[in-house]
């Protein structure tokens, strides 16, 4: 029977995280709450009768923190799933392509921002076929220009060259 002891939870032993996912979730909430409390520390709380600007943000941040603590607490007594695997590739290229779009739309316009950001996003997956992706991104951009600019006449710059720092001669 001695061999069995290792797998059994030891009562009275050191606290052990039994639900890593919830523990992580709790830490995340605590971090958000701490950030909000720090940033909102200067706001006047006021009284219940006439609330100040800081009353609700502060109390809500405290509540968020309390939920974080509760999640961490329960994660020590209840078993649960482990942490998911975090992959960087998806977030980096998908959100990166969005950032690229934001930077290019005003400076060169949709005609360039569209294909470039779509191609950046394609790095997020292995399934990409580059020839197809290039043709598709160009076609899709043309379609978007037709739809949003020509048919719906939204004020989107299609092709400009306004550099962030104005050039003067």
């Amino acid at each position: 029977m001695t061999g069995m002891d290792e797998g059994v939870a030891r009562p009275g032993g050191a606290l052990r995280v039994r639900n890593p996912q919830d523990a992580g979730a709790g830490l995340f909430l605590l971090a958000v709450a701490a950030f909000a409390l720090w940033k909102g520390a200067d706001l006047p709380l006021g009284t219940l009768r006439s609330m100040g600007a800081g009353m609700l943000p502060t109390s809500l941040a405290v509540l968020v923190g309390a939920f974080g603590l509760a999640l961490i607490g329960f994660s020590l007594v209840q078993d649960g799933p482990g942490l998911d695997r975090w992959r960087l590739r998806g977030p980096v290229f998908i959100l990166g392509s969005v950032v690229v779009f934001a930077l290019l739309i005003r400076t060169v316009g949709l005609a360039v921002a569209g294909p470039v950001s779509m191609l950046v996003s394609c790095f997020a997956t292995d399934e990409v076929r580059w020839k197809e992706a290039i043709i598709f991104s160009l076609g899709m951009t043309a379609f978007c220009i037709l739809l949003f600019k020509v048919m719906l006449s939204l004020p989107i710059p299609v092709l400009t060259l306004s550099l962030p720092i104005p050039l003067r001669f």
Binding site: I94, C122, E127, A133, F136, I156
Partner: peptide, 24 residues
């Protein structure tokens, strides 16, 4: 295939967000 769908969704979302206030 999803490999074509997600860039299309992305570009639509980007244009949409930009158009609300014309703000990058």
């Amino acid at each position: 295939p999803y490999r074509l769908m997600f860039p299309a969704i992305l570009i639509f979302c980007c244009i949409g967000i930009y158009s609300i206030n014309n703000n990058p």
